[in-house]
Nucleic acid binder design. Structure first.
Lengths: 224, 224
DNA sequence: CGGGTACTTGACAATGGTCAAGTGTGGTGG
DNA sequence: CCACCACACTTGACCATTGTCAAGTACCCG
């Protein structure tokens, strides 16, 4: 079965024994979602949580006027919707696919009983949630203490981190979604891209961004 | 020893056996902090996490210009500083006492080995972190999608929740700190208190707030 | 009673959001 | 293969909310 391979490579189930992986595969289910499909909505009763096998999923909050704030974008190997497994029982945000996606579902009750028997899974889940809390901490810091240009600069620098040496990065999401990730709107984002370009800090070609002046970009990310 | 009693009543260690509580008391240490004392700073290497025995502690992020965003305010029975126990290893934010406080410390390594043996502690910790994630989700929603009056209204309504029937609440923190909790500054908060008062929605007497028009306050919290 | 901190108030500036009208651009069907 | 349509993105004019700076007032603690 393909799932076993997938589970072994996911952050949350890494380091488990074959027996543990085997147990997991017996309780999970795999589904396909087309692009733009709703996995769950805020307030929905939660029967379990999810793992992205392939594709891309956005987790977001919606304002009454329709503006959205993206909390996370998850790709292959990442889990989402675990909060209501442990507290509450309703999803605290919305989940919608950004691409056609294959998603694995783990039912709450079976998973909880498994976690009671296998401390390693609990520890992995704790690490996963800790990371999530840390990221939220950054998001809050950005939204509350930094201006949009700083947030964008920090985002570009973050994309650059992996690509050692290179100066060009490619956005894996649309600029509209990026605006929503950064807590702003497409118009504002567009103007800031414009500003950074005319100041010679970056060059934008569609979804590709070339960093021309990294030092300056780092200044901007720091808030001047 | 007084700690055992304290642990039993804390959210994170509730439902543990006497033996488990006993184990915990052997690894923890208790310290007193005066008002305004630093428990840890962002970036500090973490040797463990903390439980508030008495007093009040603020967890916050600091901007380069000195503005602060409070992430949590923790009182008796609540834990903080657990994130780096499971990931990273450095505290992601600052912790300073708002009052003279008695705080219990749990060293990371001993706690991790304990958690491996006692799944119930892991489950409690998972519930604690899930709740934390849920609250962050609200904070992000507020900062990104709501204006300051909505945030204040929601905060007052939150304080009102416990007090069934009553219409008067008391802030347990200063208005300056409240501003920092709501992601704004004292001047702005002051003006909004003013506005709500002149509109007859609330009445403010020092730290006491009387809700005169709850329906209107709920409208404001919803974003009109 | 005094001093410092917390809070308030005013005038102003600026960031960023709103509304409206373009300008691409990619994908689909003829 | 091209035309067209929808959608993503851009640009402009405007404005609302909120932050900045500077005083002034009130209040609490010693």
């Amino acid at each position: 079965m393909r799932s076993a391979e997938l589970l072994r490579n996911s952050f949350i189930f890494q380091g488990l024994t074959e027996a543990q992986i085997g147990e997991l595969t017996t309780i999970c289910a795999e589904w396909d979602y087309p692009k733009g499909a709703t996995v769950f909505l805020e307030g929905d009763r939660a029967r379990g949580f999810y793992l992205v096998a392939s594709g891309l999923v956005k987790i977001f909050k919606l304002a009454f006027d329709g503006k959205e704030q993206i909390l996370h974008i998850f790709g292959p190997g990442e889990v989402f919707g675990e909060v209501p497994v442990f507290v509450g029982g309703n999803y605290p945000a919305n989940a919608v696919t950004l691409e056609a996606s294959r998603i694995v579902f783990f039912p709450k009750d079976e998973f909880l009983s498994l976690i009671g028997r296998e401390p390693q899974i609990a520890l992995n889940m704790l690490a996963d949630m800790s990371l999530r809390l840390k990221r939220f901490t950054h998001l809050i810091e950005n939204l509350s203490l930094k201006e949009v240009p700083s947030r964008l600069a920090a985002y570009i620098l973050f994309l650059l981190e992996d690509k050692r040496g290179e100066a060009e990065v490619r956005l894996q999401i649309s600029k509209g979604h990026l605006a929503s990730v950064l807590g702003t709107i497409p118009e504002t984002l567009s103007r800031i891209f414009n500003r950074l370009t005319s100041e010679g800090v970056i060059e934008v070609k569609g979804r590709n961004i070339v960093v021309l002046n990294r030092a300056r970009l780092e200044q901007i990310a720091a808030g001047l």
